[in-house]
Design a protein around this nucleic acid. Structure first.
Lengths: 230, 230
DNA sequence: TGCGGTTTGTGATTGCACTCACAAGCCCGT
DNA sequence: ACGGGCTTGTGAGTGCAATCACAAACCGCA
């Protein structure tokens, strides 16, 4: 099991286990955790937890559980979070500003160390302690400062162009907050976070349950009518 | 096909098609679109597009493609976006403020119509044209104003409590931006957006490709040594 | 040392989603 | 009216992920 490639689905869950483990570690005294409890905390089922963790290696002890600290370290290492990945953000509008000063990133070890924009009115401004530079300085900055990850927080119309500039600068990992699809070479990894897509999905299910309720109600009324007639 | 339940994976892609179609519709003159082109725009493959759309019904014309306007309407309707879903946001901190004034929501038909917080310093403040109220007024507001969706943008420690209050107030759809898992009854739909989880996943793959490169380089050096010896 | 209770690690099974490949069906030009 | 060229819609096949279920292994205690 240990040497097989880790399934994508598992990788996507590792951060959740990591968070749950951090919570446990903070509450002092918790030395070990069972797959059952970790599952409850992370909101998945226990078998999945065990299988996921088994891809990393046999880090548990039968009859006891997993050592919190040790597991914490292993997941951190596996996710590549033992080193830090200097991150650039491009597009310092409303959303970009909020993200740049979002504490959640820093807490989880991601330092946004460079900000870029194309708008001269924004360039030179200081956001979260960092000066915004012109996008044309991107390539040079990547080379000099070892930037590894790019965050796109421009409006959708500019996303593709920015993505190309990031690729050109040598960046292989991109997080795209703009609600549009960007095309990149196959060796570049893009992940998209679309804030309103999630709302739209909620809307779908909300509508469906409402439709079901309405149908039930109609049914009930119909049945009542029939009962009345008899 | 038409009457089968729509697979979750398909529902999750409908918003992407919707966006691509909107782009096409804006560029005037585009009347029809093939699955091939829609696939390119949305960044998926054509067979998937056709299968996805076939779940909604036979809205295409063989030899021609899909009528943009008609398809647009059908997807909008299917996603429940023909009506609007008044949305409440709880937790008006850094992130909450940015989200509350994020134009992307409004552009896609989601109006955030009520803001709540627990901090007296924030209550009464106006954010994006809306007065922040105390969380205790939530239940009443939901009943009176027909709020359907709740967005949690508190720190992780407060998320569970807020979720319970939303459930208690009768809300069935929750979007959770706090990086923590919340427990709710099975008839409530929670979706989580964790901004840093995506970065962690990128980190994993970035590390892996870096490891592979390093290994290749080591190999190359080894091979060179062997060649030298001969 | 041996036993009972507990929890992991993992083969086996099931189910879901993606992909392929092609028949069915449409349009247009002749 | 009809044939050629496209494009959809969908059964069939494939692969991945989730779940089940149980043997293996560990701890503590007598």
């Amino acid at each position: 099991m240990r040497n097989r490639p880790i399934p994508e689905a598992t990788v996507a869950r590792l951060p959740m286990y990591l968070r749950s483990l951090l919570d446990l570690a903070e509450g002092r005294g918790v030395m070990t955790v069972s797959s059952e409890e970790l599952a409850r905390l992370a909101g998945v089922n226990a078998a999945k937890v065990r299988k996921d963790l088994s891809y990393l290696g046999s880090y548990g002890t039968r009859g006891v559980g997993y050592d919190v600290e040790y597991l914490l370290y292993q997941i951190t290492r596996e996710l590549g979070l033992t080193q830090d990945w200097p991150t650039a953000m491009i597009g310092i509008g409303n959303l970009g500003r909020a993200l740049a000063s979002y504490k959640g990133f820093a807490e989880r070890g991601f330092r946004i160390t460079a900000l870029f924009d194309a708008d001269d009115n924004v360039i030179g401004e200081e956001v979260g302690g960092i000066i915004v530079r012109h996008i044309d300085e991107l390539k040079e900055a990547v080379a000099e400062e070892g930037l590894c990850i790019g965050i796109i927080s421009t409006p959708p119309s500019g996303a593709q162009e920015v993505a190309e500039k990031l690729v050109d600068a040598g960046i292989k990992s991109i997080l795209n907050f703009a609600p549009s699809h960007v095309n990149v070479p196959p060796d570049v990894n893009v992940r998209r976070v679309d804030l309103s897509v999630e709302l739209q999905i909620l809307s779908f299910y909300q509508q469906r349950t409402k439709a079901i309720e309405t149908a039930r109600e109609a049914n009930r009324r119909l049945e009542n009518q029939q009962t009345d007639r008899r």
